[in-house]
Design a protein around this nucleic acid. Structure first.
Length: 463
RNA sequence: GCUCCCAUCGUCUAGCGGUUAGGACGUCGCCCUCUCAAGGCGAAGAUCACGGGUUCGAAUCCCGUUGGGAGCGCCA
């Protein structure tokens, strides 16, 4: 049997970190086993589902590269299928009409809570066999009250549940739309899903779903419940801890492969390996090494992983990927070689693509933007006097390469009897506006003699 | 309240009866060095939540306790 997995988000929000990881694990398993990855939109909650979120979720998945082989299927377009399955259950006596009102149910639930009982449906309409079409009703699944249902979970092992703990859940609402625990079973069955990989908030729903598989006499898929992802305070991940939408990470300058790498390792391991390419992940991924406990999202480690992936890119490719971030900085260029050289010089100082663009700004501006503190410290009278010497010496350097510049610079240092820093720092401020940058020889070489001399002069004349 | 899940350095984790409990992020120090990074080296950091068992031997197996989380919707 070929592997068929699905990612089934409900379009009531953007694709978030947790959802992205669930999608990733499903996708990885499908790729590894040569199976199919199916996208299914669970939109039966018509109150909260929107097309904007459907689009947003798909955008997120496309950016990450988690492309689906089938779908998107929309549950709202599958009503006939659900209807037929409800009819079958009714026919076979595995479902019944319930005329209890929302008010009655709420009251019972509250009473049960108060009495310290588990607030489950009391079965009022279970054996009444009512057929009154004039009053509103819902349809409930008639679950067995005795016996044990065991969930075979690929991550947690066998988990037994007493059927008496479960109740008859609503499968069809008063407005004739089906509910989640029912549609998920019907869909997974009719879509021939072999592995259900989802968040462990669904673990408690699983036995009731298995009961429905049994009622239909359908084979039960393999289940795998993933632990939650938490914020730094061990609370549910929210906008306080991380971006709500994964596409926000794109805009922050993270590489999709890096985010995937980080997410893969958050809850799954492969020995001591930390850095994975997409191919590495597909080859190494397995459900056996998925952890059981919740994990805290760590932005610092994400940064490091992103940096590792940036390192693997070629200069030209990296420069190309930075283009949107340069645009955001208001930087444009006509000289591609110059841009690549700039990026090459800054890349190892960056955690994100946005960092690269920001740090490269100074190469492209006409007027250096000075950092006041740096100016105060280094563009002193003494500093300017040194800059004048540097300026004069640089006019003689030919060809204007980093190597030649370095040689000239060292001569100046020797002649002045000062330390290298005393010359390099004023020079750096003159060239870049601040005290942090690539090596000054390299910066000068990239800028070229003309711009270098111009910037040195500007700094000398700065009031 | 009831049911279920979970528990190894601050964080992600390795471990699947015998290890000086390993790696990574972060932190700190040293080296490199024109700054910052990167890189190299090193350090601190875990009584393996706690208490009982089983065993010659337990982070690993069993039971309990505590602590966290989830579910108990005409949400998904």
């Amino acid at each position: 049997m070929t592997c068929r997995v699905r990612f089934a988000p409900s379009p009531t929000g953007h694709l978030h970190i947790g959802g992205a990881r669930t999608a990733l694990y499903n996708w990885l398993l499908a790729r590894k086993l040569g199976g199919k990855f199916i996208l299914r939109v669970e939109d039966t909650d018509t109150e909260r589902s929107t097309q904007e979120y459907v689009d947003s979720i798909m955008d997120g998945m496309r950016w990450l590269g988690l492309l689906w082989d089938e779908g998107p299927y929309h549950q709202m377009e599958r009503m006939d299928i659900y209807r037929a399955h409800v009819d079958q259950l009714m026919r076979e006596g595995n479902a019944y009409r319930c005329y209890c009102t929302v008010e009655e149910l709420t009251a019972k639930r509250e009473a049960a809570q108060k009495a310290g009982q588990k607030p489950k449906y009391d079965g009022t309409c279970r054996d009444l066999n009512l057929q009154d079409d004039s009053r509103p009703y819902v349809i409930r699944f008639k679950a067995p009250t005795k016996g044990t249902t065991v969930v075979h979970d690929a991550i947690r092992g066998d988990i037994p549940f007493e059927n008496k703990e479960l109740d008859d859940l609503i499968i069809m609402r008063g407005n004739n739309t089906p509910t989640y625990n029912f549609t998920v079973v019907v869909d997974d069955v009719t879509m021939k899903i072999t592995h259900v990989i989802r968040g462990d908030d669904h673990l408690n729903n699983t036995p009731r779903q298995i009961l429905m598989y049994n009622a239909f006499n359908y084979p039960v898929p393999t289940f795998a419940h993933l632990p939650m992802i938490l914020g730094s305070d061990k609370k549910k991940l929210s906008k306080r801890h991380a971006a709500t939408s994964v596409v926000a990470y794109r805009d922050l300058g993270y590489l999709p492969e890096a985010l995937l790498n980080y997410l893969a390792r958050l809850g799954w391991s492969h020995g001591d390996q930390e850095i994975f390419s997409l191919m590495d992940m597909i080859e190494a991924f397995d459900l056996e090494h998925v952890g059981k406990s919740a994990a805290i999202f760590d932005p610092d480690k994400l940064n490091w992983v992103n940096q590792q992936h940036i390192k693997k890119l070629g200069d030209a490719e990296l420069t190309h990927m930075c283009v949107p971030f340069f645009q955001k900085e208001g930087v444009a260029w006509d000289n591609q070689e110059f841009a690549i050289a700039a990026v090459r010089s800054e890349r190892e100082r960056a955690k994100t693509l946005a960092d690269i663009a920001k740090q490269c700004r100074f190469y492209f501006v006409d007027q250096v933007e000075y950092d006041p503190a740096s100016v105060e410290k280094w563009l002193t009278a003494d500093g300017k006097a040194l800059l004048q010497k540097i300026h004069d010496r640089m006019t003689q350097v030919e060809p204007f390469t980093a190597e030649a510049i370095g040689a000239a610079f060292k001569e100046l240092v020797t002649e002045s009897g000062l330390k290298m820093v005393s010359l390099a720092q004023p020079c750096r401020v003159a060239l870049c506006g601040c005290t942090v940058s690539p090596g000054v020889y390299e910066v000068m070489a990239i800028l070229g003699k003309e711009k270098t001399l111009k910037r040195l002069t500007a700094a000398i004349n700065k009031s």
